[in-house]
């Protein structure tokens, strides 16, 4: 396209005021992107408001918080009802702890292998497979817990019930490992290669490079990976419900069945009458979960950011 040179002042002014297609596309794109960005905040606030509104009246007027956190009996349908969530809190903590014992070594080893040892095609394939592993639906993991781990735990450890903390922890650990692997590998990748080169030039072996230079430098990112993995384990519902045995008693060992906060909400919300105390109490549990995961994510974010600033 050829443009005629603007000879008079008038036509230059018109030319400068012209809005071409690119200008409009830019405006549209900026609008679309900002709406997307702002809606994230909107959703968080809306969800928080919804959960809060459902449980607020009950939590404010009739709930004893000390009973909620430390009470051992969760009997919302008995008269008089009790709302002690200690068993679920303990169950969640136990199962998450076992999950991390499984997931942290597994994902860190995988990340170190993918990030530091594997090269070329093998590395690309592994990354794809890890992401594929993260995409397995949680109900499938639940079925594996029920049908595979359950009899396996019974026969290996000689226990009566294979649906317990160990089972749910293993399942959750395997579920959290892929995302933790991806995050940990990102953290390793962020370590400048000049550090590795410097250490190798001084005569460090590959392993010395990794544990003396790469891992210490990647520690904030690795901590964030663990925290997000914990968040993932906390929030998982259906697989734990299927694998944990769902028993409302604080577990004393990994071979005891247990219940988690999420599984209890999932299992009981359907049978609780809308707006009943029981219904509202479940929303209070949801609120507790929300705060815990929120705090974990915030902490992970702080760790990563804090490192970047320094």
């Amino acid at each position: 396209m050829t443009r005629t040179p603007t000879s008079t002042h008038d036509s230059l002014a018109r030319e400068l005021a012209r809005r071409d297609a690119a200008w409009w596309r830019d405006l549209a794109a900026r609008l679309a992107v900002s709406i997307g960005g702002v809606s994230t905040i909107l959703f968080i606030v809306a969800i928080f408001a919804f959960i809060g509104s459902q449980g607020f009246e009950f939590a404010w007027n009739r709930l004893s918080w000390s009973e909620l956190f430390f009470g051992t009996r969760w009997e919302p349908t008995v008269s008089p009802p009790t709302y002690g969530a200690w068993a679920m809190i303990a169950g969640t903590a136990w199962i998450t702890a076992v999950a991390m014992l499984v997931a942290v070594p597994l994902s860190f080893c995988a990340a170190v292998y993918i990030g530091e040892f594997a090269t070329g095609r093998r590395r690309e394939w592994l990354k794809i497979l890890v992401e594929l592993l993260a995409a397995i639906p949680s109900v499938v993991w639940g079925v594996i817990g029920l049908q595979v781990f359950n009899p396996m735990i019974q026969s290996v450890f000689g226990v009566q019930i294979g649906l317990n903390v160990l089972n749910a922890g293993l399942i959750l650990g395997l579920m959290a490992a892929p995302i933790m692997t991806t995050l940990a590998e990102d953290a390793l990748k962020a370590v400048p290669d000049s550090y590795r080169e410097a250490a190798e030039a001084l005569g460090a072996t590959r392993w010395q490079v990794i544990y003396k230079v790469v891992l210490p430098h990647a520690r904030p990112g690795l901590s964030a990976a663990v925290l997000l993995g914990i968040g993932r384990a906390f929030g998982e519902t259906i697989a734990v419900l299927m694998a944990s045995g769902h028993t409302l008693m604080a577990p004393g060992s990994v071979f005891d069945s247990a219940a988690t906060l999420t599984a209890t909400i999932a299992a009981e919300l359907g049978e609780a009458a809308v707006d009943s105390d029981h219904y509202q109490a479940l929303f209070v549990l949801g609120l507790v979960l929300f705060f815990i995961t929120f705090a974990i994510n915030l902490l992970a974010d702080r760790i990563v950011r804090g490192r970047r600033r320094s």
């Binding site: 000049s194 550090y195 080169e197 410097a198 250490a199 190798e200 030039a201 001084l202 005569g203 460090a204 072996t205 003396k212 230079v213 210490p216 430098h217």
Partner: peptide
């Protein structure tokens, strides 16, 4: 090659001290 590198030191184009203390850098090798 580990031993080779102890006897043949290398300085790079961009200074690349490790993210450790000055003392630990000197003692690293």
């Amino acid at each position: 090659r580990i031993q080779v590198r102890a006897h043949v030191g290398m300085v790079f184009q961009r200074p690349n001290p490790l993210p450790l203390s000055i003392r630990d850098n000197v003692l690293f090798g």
